[in-house]
């Protein structure tokens, strides 16, 4: 077997990416950047799957990544459409401006 990266490194990277995504999601008000942050978080999750699949030599991890990939593509399509509608209606991309559903 060739030299491998220890799985803990990969998981650590995944946690780091997920944290960066989360912070980005919570701190940015621009909807586009929030979507980008979500992409980062999704990929962090994907990384965790793939590394885990490699660790136990199972294909499941990679299969799950494909699912995530497809889901992310769909999410971006819907998300960007919503962003467009938002921009048309409010002339802004500030997520906090759309708070009609407040209790």
């Amino acid at each position: 077997m060739t030299a491998t990266v220890p799985v803990s490194y990969a998981l650590f990277l995944a946690i780091l990416l997920f944290g960066i995504g989360t912070v980005g999601l919570l701190s940015r008000r621009n909807v586009i950047f929030m979507l980008l942050s979500i992409e980062v978080m999704l990929n962090a999750a994907g990384l965790a799957f793939v590394s885990a699949g490699a660790r136990w030599a199972q294909p499941d991890g990679q299969v799950m990544f494909f699912f995530i990939l497809a889901m992310a593509a769909a999410e971006v399509a819907v998300g960007l459409a919503l962003v467009l509608r938002l921009y048309h209606q409010r002339e802004t991309l500030d997520a906090d401006a759309a708070d009609e559903l407040k209790g």
Partner: peptide, 15 residues
């Protein structure tokens, strides 16, 4: 108090 948490902001819910 509970109604105040429903402020309609996506980021707040995400938090």
């Amino acid at each position: 108090a509970l109604a105040a948490t429903q402020n309609g902001r996506v980021r707040w819910y995400a938090a």
